[in-house]
Computed example of a mutant assay.
Amino acid sequence: MKRVLIAAAALMLISAPAVEVEAWGNTGHRLIGVAAMRALPDDLPAFLKTPGAIADVGELSREPDRWKGAGQPHDRERDTAHFIDLTEDGRSMTAAGPSIDELPRLKSEFDAALIAAGLDVNDVGYLPYAMMDAWQNLGRDFAYWRVLNAAEARETDPGKKAWYRADRERREALIVRDIGVLSHYIGDGSQPHHTTIHYNGWSRDVPNPEGFTTSRQTHAMFEGAYVSRIARLDTVEAGMTPARLDGFDLRGRTAAYLKSTLATVTPFYRLEKAGGFAEADPRGAAFANERLAAGASELRDWIIASWRESATVSIGWPAIKVNEVEAGAVDPWTSMIGED
């Protein structure tokens, strides 16, 4: 299936409450990244709270869209990471497709389930796996940063201390980049059209009892000039929900988040039918800003959960426990620099 892809060059002044840019592909992703970063608690590394890191995450939140056009197999494999086409009851593409509530552990197993259901893997999309992969990658980043930061603080050998510092700085750049990638996919997951078979007008392959639009301009209308005109950082931040971190389970949280967005698909089409996206109608602005706030809230939670879990894992080779290094019980030098 083909999707409407929006691209535009624009700038965002994150210090100002109003944001003047074009297209959700830029505006929405920037806003979600910036709002989430500004909402991180103080117990996360201080470098994440700097204006530079916040601005960089906003820009890097667009990165998976900017990868497009690299050629094959890159594009075919990556383009389908931005969405998952679900029926109203959360099944992949058709009633025979696997349920979002029963995501297999591996993407390859998900692909096999789609093929068994007679579905084309490239039609359905694999957004949940892109989200989970990005979160796990960030967890590795945080774990290495914890070890490098602790080792640098304790190291007395000047040469080793300098190496730890340099590698920590490299890891900080990777963390900002990888938060940007995570931000993009979580942002995609907050946009109703990225979670449904009705991704660009109501699908003509299923009943349409309420007479919703089938216009192939629907996706572009919402992600394009409309959101550019009404999106505001202060409104998004005001709409963010309190953190929900207790019992964070990656697959369960992924499914719940995408289902919550899926539940906004029919309300979107009802609002569109009622003229809610007309220029002066506040209902459309409220809907769009709520969706951006949902993405920012989710991203904030995923970053915090990744940071907290990173204290409990093992990394490097030979493997070392992060919490033992932070406690000063283990010297991580060999595990960090490598032993050939």
Rank of each mutant, 00 (worst) to 15 (best):
G284S: 06
V330Y: 00
T156L: 08
R270S: 09
T218Y: 08
D157F: 03
L262S: 05
G252I: 04
A130D: 04
Y257K: 00
N323G: 01
N200K: 03
R251F: 14
M1L: 14
N289I: 04
T266P: 11
A55S: 14
T213H: 02
P64Q: 09
N323W: 01
L48Q: 01
A231C: 09
H82G: 02
T27N: 05
A9L: 10
A130C: 10
A255Q: 00
D89I: 10
R216P: 04
L103I: 10
A7R: 13
T261G: 10
P242S: 10
T264L: 12
R229F: 10
G71P: 13
E272V: 09
R177C: 10
D111G: 02
W302Y: 10
T27A: 08
P332V: 02
W67D: 15
A8D: 04
H74V: 13
D178L: 08
L11C: 12
Q72Y: 12
S61V: 06
S297F: 07
W145Y: 15
K160T: 12
V176Y: 00
W333P: 01
D157W: 01
D75L: 08
T235W: 07
R165G: 15
I179F: 02
I303C: 05
A305M: 00
A288Q: 06
A143K: 09
A112K: 07
E272T: 09
V325S: 10
L138A: 04
